[in-house]
Amino acid sequence: MATIIAFESVTLDGVMQAPGRPDEDTRGGFEYGGWAAPYQDEVGARFAGEEMSRGGAMLFGRRTYDDLLGFWTTTPEPNPFTDALVNAPKYVVSRDRDIRLGYPNSTLLAGEASETVAQLRRTLDGPLTVLGSGKLVRALFGARLVDELVLQQYPLVLGTGTTLFGLTRVELDLQRTMPTTTGVIIAQYAVR
């Protein structure tokens, strides 16, 4: 059975919307896209590289799949993230059975996330990592399908935006923490 790992970037008030770029996700009039960029450092990059090198498959909501792969596959500079994202098996959850997936090694999981991901989890071995995909992650937590949570918590309060939390009660056991040089706290949790 696969181990589902949610890998998320959040502000101190739990906002996860558009950490990477100003135009990443402006839904709801969100104006603070790219909030994580000033906090990037070598410690965080090395940690992300370690997590990507774990191998295994990746799990995305459709919007995050299109955005993340669209960005990393058009980045002109060589980087380890592009190769890991393109080469890994990718599963994309969507209620729309007719969408076309534009990147190699991608499989559509059409239907309700709690059902399709539960079935996938039973058939795979190894890590199944979710990057971003807030709506999907909230559904997976609600269905008790997440085994591990990796939070990159940024020293920033936005006061607005889509948050990761607002879920049913979730109890976590802290496994490891790591501070970066810019004040980001990386915390790995096992979900009880």
Results as ranks from 00 to 15, higher is better:
38 P>C: 05
141 F>W: 10
133 S>L: 11
46 R>G: 01
178 M>V: 09
82 T>W: 08
89 P>G: 01
16 M>I: 15
83 D>P: 05
191 V>F: 11
161 G>K: 01
148 E>W: 02
23 D>G: 01
97 R>Y: 05
187 A>H: 10
167 L>N: 14
67 D>S: 13
168 T>N: 09
66 D>W: 04
132 G>K: 06
68 L>W: 14
101 L>Q: 11
85 L>C: 06
30 F>N: 10
150 V>N: 02
165 F>D: 01
5 I>V: 15
127 P>W: 08
62 R>F: 11
48 A>L: 12
131 L>H: 13
151 L>Q: 06
108 L>V: 07
91 Y>V: 01
14 G>F: 08
41 D>T: 05
33 G>N: 01
112 E>W: 03
15 V>A: 02
190 A>L: 14
51 E>I: 12
38 P>V: 05
105 N>Q: 12
179 P>I: 11
179 P>K: 08
5 I>T: 15
158 L>G: 09
164 L>H: 02
97 R>I: 08
178 M>L: 15
101 L>N: 11
98 D>N: 15
64 T>D: 15
79 N>C: 08
112 E>L: 09
54 R>V: 01
31 E>H: 00
17 Q>G: 09
89 P>W: 00
103 Y>P: 03
115 E>Q: 06
55 G>M: 08
147 D>T: 12
101 L>I: 07
145 L>G: 12
39 Y>I: 00
189 Y>W: 10
60 F>A: 10
42 E>P: 04
24 E>D: 13
151 L>W: 03
38 P>T: 03
21 R>E: 13
154 Y>A: 03
65 Y>Q: 14
51 E>A: 14
142 G>F: 04
49 G>N: 13
102 G>A: 12
137 V>N: 10
63 R>Q: 05
97 R>W: 04
105 N>R: 13
119 Q>G: 08
71 F>N: 07
26 T>M: 02
13 D>W: 12
62 R>P: 11
94 S>L: 09
169 R>Q: 14
25 D>M: 05
61 G>T: 01
142 G>P: 00
52 M>I: 05
101 L>T: 07
174 L>W: 02
3 T>V: 14
3 T>L: 06
164 L>F: 10
134 G>A: 15
109 L>Y: 00
130 V>Q: 04
152 Q>I: 00
40 Q>V: 13
49 G>K: 15
16 M>Y: 01
110 A>M: 09
57 A>L: 07
120 L>E: 07
17 Q>R: 11
143 A>F: 06
85 L>N: 01
186 I>A: 03
67 D>N: 08
119 Q>L: 13
87 N>Y: 07
159 G>S: 03
140 L>I: 07
80 P>L: 03
85 L>K: 02
141 F>G: 07
189 Y>V: 13
145 L>C: 12
23 D>R: 01
66 D>Y: 02
129 T>L: 00
80 P>V: 13
102 G>H: 11
192 R>M: 06
134 G>E: 11
114 S>N: 14
10 V>A: 05
9 S>Q: 09
19 P>C: 02
92 V>I: 15
145 L>T: 06
151 L>G: 03
26 T>D: 03
97 R>L: 07
37 A>F: 10
4 I>L: 07
9 S>F: 12
1 M>I: 00
3 T>D: 06
183 G>A: 13
184 V>P: 05
177 T>W: 03
131 L>Q: 08
83 D>F: 11
135 K>P: 04
66 D>H: 04
